[in-house]
């Protein structure tokens, strides 16, 4: 009997695959022949969001370009856990130079490919938040400004993890790190500090800027695919929980990414040529507390000596995001 396919599946739009979907509708990660650009045997911590995010991005990019991807990596966890001599976990052409120069090195690769007439090969630069928003920002801004044909991916785990969890320009307020201790009257990272790089990227008017998390694979993959349809500089900023630095359970990496989005604390959106074109709507809104509580880096905000006042300030950030990035469906039933 022929059955008319319906758009309603148990899990169609949220899970990785689902046998009921056609291959095109499934995520690249559900493909048994996915590239596994970052393969087994790497030394990332259990439940590392960065390891997950990197494979998601590169496998998708590989699929989108018929396997024609080269990657440049900044120093940081991703680099260290993937390529300790004598073993590498990469299965694609990959180059690590320094902590702060991934964007420029990638520009070099892209420029060389252009000179060689091999523009079918595409270049991805990647790094942690420290390597991206802080030390690597100069070269990154240069790459953007020149509109070099590079997709830069920032795996934002909100601190310098590889060196043992220190504050970066992407560490959120109140978060504890080893250089923003949970001590004193203003515990954790300071409010009114830090930067949100996607907005700065947009200010460069580059063709494509997007944020994503490892919780919504379909969204992430769609963005990587979309990024590959543009020529010129593109920026993808992915929130990747770090069990070690966040003090979270290794099995909660995805749950926390989801909670970051559902609370509005991390806005997921995309922009083209400097203008926001869409944002991912919150599906089941939760208070920031639900996102913060499972993480030990916020432990000082809760319990007997907790700081509800600070939680309230963080909630205001989420509320503000919801407004600024239009994160709640208009007229949505609550």
């Amino acid at each position: 009997m022929t059955v008319t396919p319906l758009k309603f599946y148990q899990v169609g739009s949220f899970a990785v695959g689902n046998r009921l979907l056609t291959d095109e509708e499934r995520s690249e990660q559900s493909n048994p022949n996915r590239v596994n650009a970052l393969t087994s045997g790497h030394r990332a911590c259990q439940g590392c969001g960065e390891a997950l995010g990197a494979r998601y991005v590169l496998d998708t990019a590989m699929a989108a370009t018929d396997g024609k991807i080269m990657a440049v990596n900044a120093t940081g966890c991703l680099e260290v856990f993937s390529t300790p001599y004598p073993e590498t976990s990469w299965r694609i052409p990959w180059l690590h130079s320094l902590f702060g120069n991934a964007a420029a090195v990638a520009s070099g690769v892209a420029t060389a490919l252009k000179a060689q007439g091999k523009t079918d090969i595409r270049v991805i630069a990647q790094g942690g938040d420290g390597g991206t928003v802080d030390i690597g920002f100069g070269p990154l801004s240069g790459m953007w400004e020149r509109n070099d044909d590079v997709l830069y991916v920032c795996y934002d785990n909100e601190a310098y993890m590889n060196t043992g969890v220190q504050r970066s320009g992407a560490t959120p307020p109140a978060a504890r790190t080893n250089t923003s201790h949970a001590s004193g009257p203003e515990p954790g990272a300071h409010f009114n500090q830090g930067k949100f790089l996607p907005l700065i990227a947009m200010a460069h008017h580059i063709p494509y800027v997007a944020t994503a998390t490892v919780a919504d694979l379909h969204d992430l993959e769609a963005k990587v695919k979309k990024a590959m349809t543009f020529r010129g500089a593109r920026y993808l900023h992915i929130l990747v929980p770090c069990p070690l630095g966040w003090g979270s359970r290794s099995d909660e990496t995805i749950m926390l990414s989801r909670a970051a989005v559902e609370s509005g604390f991390f806005p997921v959106f995309e922009a083209e040529h400097g203008v926001m074109t869409s944002s991912k709507k919150i599906r089941r809104r939760i208070p920031v507390e639900e996102y913060l509580k499972p993480q030990k880096r916020y432990a000082h905000l809760f319990g007997a000596n907790g700081r509800p006042d600070i939680v309230e300030r963080l909630q205001r950030i989420a509320d503000h995001n919801i407004e600024q990035y239009d994160l709640v469906e208009k007229g949505a039933e609550e």
């Binding site: 080269m70 180059l95 130079s97 120069n101 420029a104 090195v105 070099g108 420029t111 000179a115 100069g138």
Partner: peptide
């Protein structure tokens, strides 16, 4: 078949050189 790139710093210049060289140019 030559590209000339204006970079944002000497650190960038040498980094671009590294990337381009590693890509075989």
């Amino acid at each position: 078949h030559c590209e000339f790139l204006n970079v944002e710093s000497e650190f960038g210049a040498m980094s671009v050189a590294i990337g381009a060289s590693a890509a075989g140019s």
